[in-house]
């Protein structure tokens, strides 16, 4: 049966000392979607994911697949697989020991699929995880995650430090081997350009608050990039954009698609453009 919402979060607030990392977050995450979670560093992305997994003390309520969760509730992990940085695998185990361990404690382990994935990879069962390259660790993490029949997959900056080839491979494998209409994937990443094509929904988070949750296609219809010569900058400024970018004698800004500016070039914005428009400028790459 397909659940309407796989995750429902109400009044979620989290403090680290006096710092408010999450501020009264209210969100419903539907089943069968690939969702991007975007925010600057320290915006609350990882905290949000860790609260969902029951790792952090927090105020508010979290429901997963209709069941309210408590902190450190192991049954949460029966339905949710979590990939943080791929370096979090246990370096002291071998590839085989890691697979044996995960398969023995997860009732949803699909051994046939695991063997297929192992055979198609160049991972050697007796090899120590510590001796694997970062790319190989990614393959192992994918192997053990994709061999689990879970409903939700949380990815928290999973490709951090990987080169472009492995980053592409990572997301292609997730899309090809894991995703179907019953499964939900939430991806928090800085490399937004690489996941933009696979995302269906987007959540923008800033200073612990969810500032937007929207279907990406709908969002891109609502906004456009308007580009005018630099000497016509005021034409853009009239519409109060948060950021005006300078490029080769021209200036551009993300504005409502309904806006009409004579002689302006109009193009579709990327997620990065939309993020900067909604959240504001930052020196950090998103």
């Amino acid at each position: 049966m397909i659940q309407k919402n796989v995750i429902k979060v109400s009044n979620l607030t989290k403090y680290y000392g006096k710092f408010k990392a999450l501020d009264n977050v209210e969100i419903e995450i539907p089943a069968g979607r690939i969702i991007g979670l975007l925010g600057k560093n320290g915006a609350g992305k990882s905290t949000f994911m860790r609260c969902i997994l029951g790792f952090l003390k927090h105020k508010g309520e979290i429901e997963i697949l209709g069941n309210q969760i408590r902190r450190h509730q192991e049954s949460v992990h029966e339905n949710i697989a979590f990939i943080p940085d791929v370096n979090s695998l246990d370096d002291r185990l071998t590839v085989k020991q890691t697979m044996d361990y995960v398969s023995a404690i997860n009732s949803s382990w699909n051994n046939t699929k695991a063997m297929e994935l192992l055979a198609s990879s160049d991972l050697k069962p007796q090899q120590k995880v510590a001796n694997l390259s970062k790319g190989m660790k990614t393959k192992l993490y994918l192997l053990i995650t994709l061999s689990l029949d879970v409903t939700v997959l949380l990815l928290d900056e999973p490709t951090l430090g990987l080169d472009i080839v492995f980053r592409k491979e990572f997301f292609n494998t997730i899309l090809g081997e894991f995703y179907d209409e019953n499964k939900t994937i939430i991806i928090s990443t800085h490399q937004v350009e690489e996941v933009e094509q696979i995302l269906q929904d987007i959540i923008f988070i800033d200073e612990g608050k969810i500032i937007l949750q929207e279907d990406i296609d709908e969002l891109k219809k609502q906004y456009s990039i308007f580009t005018v010569p630099s000497d016509q900058r005021e034409k853009l400024e009239q519409h109060n954009p948060k950021i005006i970018s300078n490029t080769l004698g021209k200036v551009s800004a993300v504005l409502d698609s309904k806006v009409e500016i004579a002689e302006a070039q109009v193009s579709r914005p990327t997620l990065s453009d939309l993020f900067l428009e909604m959240v504001g400028g930052s020196n950090e790459k998103i």
């Binding site: 997994l53 790792f55 450190h72 192991e74 049954s75 949460v76 992990h77 029966e78 697989a81 979590f82 943080p84 370096n87 979090s88 695998l89 246990d90 370096d91 002291r92 995960v102 404690i105 997860n106 009732s107």
Partner: peptide, 15 residues
């Protein structure tokens, strides 16, 4: 210390 706490705690097994 081994940076694998998240991996182990993300498994469906009681603390």
């Amino acid at each position: 210390r081994n940076n694998s706490e998240l991996f182990h705690r993300s498994q469906p097994v009681s603390i």
